[in-house]
């Protein structure tokens, strides 16, 4: 091949590849634009005031296409599929209790995306911003509204290359004292202090301002742990429990459990655990659920499952009876107000 022929080949290839690259970006850009237009038949959304106090409201992240996509919205508890009132607060993950909200959000930068955990007052105004090191996944507020916890996925923490790990942080909103990572707590496993480089925590659920349950993973096994904020300890309780969620009366946990023989892409099923008898009951949801459920009352839990436009919200009785029911489309991370 002559130098001239090589050059011509290169120019033609650059033109071809450049066209393909440009077309793919344009296509994706157009698709992103479409999401700003409301879908016919979708839930009606309008701007308005959203408050974390009051009663009978459910606040969640709206995933329906249109100008209010990803905004926090409020609906009456009695009509969760009805008209949504949107506040201009955009979150990836959200939770609220007793007038304190937590919003895990993304900010676009030139070189990379950055993430923050914003603690919100009852009017959704930011009280405090904490920079977080990874992609948000779970967040909870204690029943009193004083303590907030969140879990993020961190890449590159691992010495083994492209592994992911989690980092779970807890903050006391009365003092703004932050525990950057639960890995700073002492782990008591099977009655003895435990050390390992591969420890991961996720999915905190508070029982009160000083105590919580969460998941600890090490050596390929997950454990339900009970944490003590004052003593800075976590104690393992049993295995194969992920993303526990404590019932309002504090007697039961609903969690996702890896079931043997399941499709590796859909490994989890929802179970309830009675904390007094330690008896496990499978819930009447036969699909794999990868979420930390939210209790909508003493007997019902809600969770997300992939839908046509983002996640849909489903509910199922917490005692193994009944059947799963879709509560709202294009909705994520509900919190019940009042």
């Amino acid at each position: 091949m002559t130098a001239r022929a090589r050059l011509i080949t290169l120019v033609v290839a650059v033109a071809l590849l450049g066209t393909v690259a440009f077309a793919s970006v344009m296509h994706a850009s157009q698709r992103a634009g479409e999401r700003d237009t409301a879908q016919p038949g979708g839930p009606p959304v309008s701007a308005g005031a959203v408050s974390l106090t009051g009663s009978g409201r459910m606040v969640f992240r709206n995933m329906a296409w249109g100008p209010y996509r990803d905004d926090l919205v409020s609906v009456p508890v009695g009509d969760p599929g009805g008209a949504r009132v949107a506040a201009s607060v955009r979150c990836l993950r959200f939770y609220a209790a007793a007038g304190t909200g937590v919003c895990l959000r993304k900010e676009d930068g030139a070189l990379q995306e950055t993430y923050f955990a914003s603690i919100l007052d009852s009017g959704l105004r930011t009280l405090h911003d904490f920079p977080i090191a990874g992609i948000p996944t779970r967040t909870r507020v204690s029943p009193s509204g004083h303590m907030v916890a969140w879990t993020v996925f961190v890449g590159g923490d691992s010495y083994a290359g492209s592994n992911f790990s989690t980092r779970t942080s807890i903050v006391d909103t009365r003092t703004w004292e932050l525990t950057p990572s639960l890995e700073d707590y002492t782990i008591i496993k099977d009655g003895r202090p435990y050390h390992s480089a591969d420890v991961n925590f996720w999915g905190v659920t508070f029982s009160d301002d000083g105590h919580f349950y969460a998941t600890l993973a090490t050596k390929g096994q997950t454990y339900l742990i009970r944490g003590d904020v004052a003593a800075r300890t976590v104690t393992t309780m049993r295995t194969n429990v992920e993303c526990p969620s404590l019932s309002p009366d504090g007697t039961r946990l609903v969690f996702k459990k890896r079931v043997p023989g399941a499709d590796p892409d859909e490994p989890w099923r929802l179970y309830a655990l009675d904390l007094k008898t330690m008896a496990e009951t499978p819930l009447a949801e036969s699909r794999s659920v990868d979420d930390q459920v939210v209790w909508s009352d003493e007997n019902t839990v809600m969770y997300g499952l992939a839908g046509d436009y983002g996640d849909d919200l489903w509910s199922v009785p917490a005692d193994g009876t009944g059947a799963a029911r879709r509560v709202a489309v294009a909705a994520l991370n509900p919190a019940f107000i009042g």
Partner: peptide, 11 residues
């Protein structure tokens, strides 16, 4: 929307 824990187990 996947949980990437254990993603690099074989790493």
């Amino acid at each position: 929307g996947l949980s990437p824990l254990g993603f690099g187990v074989l790493d």
